[in-house]
Simulated assay, not measured.
Amino acid sequence: MLSKININTRIIIICLTSLIWIFLYKLVLIDLDEIFPKAREIAELTFGLLSSVIASCIFYYIVVYLERKRMSKILFPSLNKRLKVFGIEAHMIKSELFKLNNKQYKNEKLLAGDIMNLCHKIKLSSIPPEIFGNPSYQASNWYEYFEYFFQSDKFHSSQLYNYINYLTPDILKELDNLQLSHFQSALHHYKSNPNLNDLSGLGGPFWLYLESLEKISKAELK
């Protein structure tokens, strides 16, 4: 339960709890008789500690929270645009797979079995579609085709890692998964074995790779 509460909410709860106790102590409890020996001394010590907690909360609000909020207004729009790039990559790959099967990709949700069916006739040693960009790129085989996207993932991930303190745990998890995905490892294995040449055999890892791209793209920093 506590793990689902963000750090700012936790600090507010601690600060308000400390403030309530201080008011209760100074306005009510201080006039009551001691209920046990040294109770007043313990109460004063607690009062001092909780006053320090409140001072720390105020310091956090001014130095950390307000500064982070200011930076988020500057950084988050740019970081969110970079997150969307991963989704664009996934869309490009899926669209080309559909075109190779004389179909049109309409942003439908795909399962691992769907990816395997789309890759059924694709040989990794064959020439893949051209990657249109600035400049465009024509790979000589599917290994080079996917390597283009792996390098793109690495570049955009490195840019995002520069602002790691602003990224959520979920985003970091998916970025870490991309650094050497199961799909990339499987491709390396296939490339070293001439007898393995069917992209459909990598349907599962391929699907997981596309899912990671989609998850990062759908994340939004606020």
Rank of each mutant, 00 (worst) to 15 (best):
L2V: 13
L2E: 13
I5G: 03
N6P: 07
I7W: 10
I7Q: 12
T9M: 11
R10Y: 09
R10T: 07
I11S: 05
I13Q: 08
C15P: 00
L16T: 13
T17G: 10
S18T: 04
I20H: 02
I20C: 09
W21R: 03
I22A: 00
I22K: 00
F23T: 11
L24M: 12
Y25Q: 12
Y25G: 00
L27G: 03
D33F: 12
P37R: 03
R40H: 10
E44Y: 11
L45K: 14
L45A: 10
F47S: 12
G48C: 09
G48R: 12
G48L: 12
L49Y: 10
L49P: 00
L49K: 08
L50C: 01
A55D: 06
A55T: 11
C57H: 01
I58D: 02
Y60L: 06
Y60T: 06
Y60Q: 06
I62L: 13
Y65A: 06
L66R: 15
E67H: 10
S72V: 03
K73Y: 09
K73M: 07
L75E: 06
L75P: 01
S78M: 13
K81W: 07
L83R: 04
F86L: 03
G87D: 03
I88E: 13
E89M: 14
A90C: 05
A90Q: 08
I93H: 05
S95G: 09
E96L: 04
L97P: 01
L97C: 04
F98N: 01
F98R: 02
L100P: 00
L100M: 15
N102L: 11
K103W: 00
K103G: 08
Y105F: 15
Y105I: 02
N107W: 00
E108R: 01
G113E: 07
G113C: 01
G113N: 13
G113R: 05
L118G: 02
C119K: 04
H120K: 15
H120G: 04
K121I: 03
K123D: 11
K123H: 11
L124G: 15
S125E: 11
S125P: 00
P129S: 07
P129F: 02
I131R: 06
F132L: 14
G133W: 02
G133Q: 07
G133V: 02
P135I: 06
S136W: 01
Q138H: 09
W142T: 00
W142M: 01
W142R: 00
W142H: 11
Y143N: 06
E144Y: 08
Y145S: 05
E147L: 10
Y148M: 01
F149I: 02
F150D: 06
S152Y: 10
D153V: 02
D153Q: 13
D153T: 04
Y161K: 14
N165M: 10
Y166T: 07
K173H: 12
K173P: 00
D176N: 15
N177L: 13
L180M: 14
S181N: 07
Q184F: 05
Q184M: 10
A186W: 04
L187S: 06
H189D: 14
H189A: 15
H189S: 15
P194K: 07
N195F: 10
L196M: 12
D198I: 08
S200I: 04
G201W: 00
G201Y: 02
G201D: 13
G203N: 02
G203T: 04
F206A: 03
W207K: 07
L210G: 04
E211C: 08
E214A: 09
K215W: 00
S217N: 05
A219S: 15
E220C: 08
K222G: 09
